[in-house]
Computed example of a mutant assay.
Amino acid sequence: MTAAGIDNNHNGIRDEVDALISREYQESVAQTKYAQQLARAMQVSATIVKPSRDQATSILKTNMLGVACLRYNTSTDKGDADVSKLTAATFNTTGRRKNNEEVGLIAGIISISVPRSDACK
C-alpha cells in the first residue's frame, strides 16, 4: 500500500478517514465540512515527497487553517481532541508521518498567524 491509500470516491480523503468523519464529526454541517477540509490538507502532507520550500510552507498554512476552522466549529471541550483524532488517523503509518515531518523540516521556521473564525469558508 502506498502513502496515498485508497480513496474510492476521489474526494482527496482516504476512505478510512472519510468513514471516521462520517461517524464522529457530525455535530454540525460546519464541523463536518472543516473536518473534511483538514483531512484533505493533511493528506497532502502525508503523501508529498520532497516538496519545495514554497510547497511545504503552503501546506503548513493550509493545515493550520484547517485546524483553526475545525476548532472554531467544534464544541469547546472537544476541539483539541477532534483535531488529535483526525491527525492520528491521517498519519497512521511510518511513511505518512515521515512525509509530514519532512514538510515541516523543509518549510523551516515560518510565522503563521492563527486565522480568525471569519477566515473559515
Rank of each mutant, 00 (worst) to 15 (best):
R14Q: 09
G95A: 14
D18S: 08
Q55A: 07
K98Y: 14
Q31E: 13
T90K: 10
T57V: 09
K78N: 07
R71I: 13
T74S: 07
N11H: 12
Q37I: 11
D18K: 09
R116W: 06
T2I: 12
A3E: 13
E27W: 04
D18F: 05
G108F: 03
R23D: 05
D80P: 12
E101P: 00
P51V: 04
R53I: 07
T57E: 15
L65Y: 07
R71Q: 14
N9D: 14
G104Y: 14
V67Y: 12
N9M: 07
D118R: 06
T76P: 15
S28K: 03
C120N: 00
G108P: 11
R53S: 03
T2W: 11
M42P: 03
N11I: 02
G5S: 06
A81Q: 10
R53Y: 04
G79I: 07
S117V: 12
N8M: 09
K78V: 03
E101Y: 12
N92T: 05
Q26Y: 05
A46W: 12
R97A: 04
Q31Y: 03
Q55C: 06
A30H: 06
N9E: 04
A3K: 13
S113C: 09
P115T: 07
D82H: 15
I21S: 00
R116G: 10
R96E: 02
A119S: 13
T76G: 11
A30E: 12
K61N: 10
A4G: 05
D18N: 10
R53D: 08
Y72H: 02
V67M: 04
E101K: 08
R97I: 10
L20G: 03
N73D: 07
Y72P: 07
V49W: 13
T87K: 11
D118N: 08
T47C: 00
S52C: 06
S28A: 01
I48D: 00
V44S: 03
I48S: 00
V17E: 01
Q43G: 06
A3V: 06
K50E: 10
V103Y: 01
N73Q: 05
A89C: 07
K85F: 00
M64H: 13
Q36R: 09
A46H: 11
K121V: 00
E101R: 11
L86A: 09
I48N: 02
N100H: 15
G95I: 15
A4I: 14
L60K: 09
F91I: 11
A19L: 05
L86N: 11
E16F: 14
T74G: 02
N63Q: 15
N63H: 13
R71M: 08
E16D: 13
R23T: 07
A56H: 00
P115E: 05
R116M: 08
Q37V: 01
A3Y: 11
Q26F: 03
C120M: 03
N8H: 12
G108Q: 12
R14L: 01
N8V: 11
G12L: 04
A68I: 02
R14C: 04
